[in-house]
Simulated scan of single mutants.
Amino acid sequence: MNFDDDKAGLLLNAIGMAVVDLIAAQVPITRDTLVERLEHNRKVTGNVIGKGANRDAAELVRKGQ
């Protein structure tokens, strides 16, 4: 995947927020738990840009690219 700086920033923010959520909940950080949290965040996010960022970040983590 090739990202411009803005999209990379959105993905980094989504992944970072998911990691912080998992740490706060004292959940082990694994690929599966990270993808689950990103998908959860996508569902609860009210704006289209946030939904897309979480969806793309989950795909990136899932595929490991």
Rank of each mutant, 00 (worst) to 15 (best):
M1Y: 07
M1R: 14
N2H: 15
F3V: 15
D6R: 15
D6F: 11
K7P: 06
K7N: 15
A8V: 04
G9T: 06
L10N: 10
L11H: 03
L11Y: 10
N13V: 14
I15G: 00
I15N: 04
G16F: 11
G16P: 00
G16Y: 08
A18V: 02
A18M: 03
V19K: 12
V19S: 00
V20N: 12
D21R: 12
L22F: 06
I23E: 14
A24E: 14
A24P: 00
A25G: 08
V27W: 13
V27K: 15
P28S: 12
P28W: 09
T30Q: 08
T30A: 02
D32I: 08
D32Y: 04
L34E: 03
L34Y: 05
E36I: 02
L38P: 04
L38I: 09
L38Y: 01
H40A: 09
N41V: 04
N41P: 10
N41R: 14
R42P: 07
K43G: 06
V44P: 01
V44E: 05
T45H: 04
G46I: 14
V48L: 11
V48D: 15
V48R: 13
V48A: 08
I49L: 12
I49R: 10
G50I: 03
K51T: 14
A53H: 07
A53E: 02
D56T: 11
A57S: 03
A58F: 00
E59S: 11
L60V: 03
V61T: 03
R62K: 12
R62C: 03
K63A: 11
K63W: 04
K63F: 06
K63E: 07
G64N: 00
G64I: 05
Q65T: 09
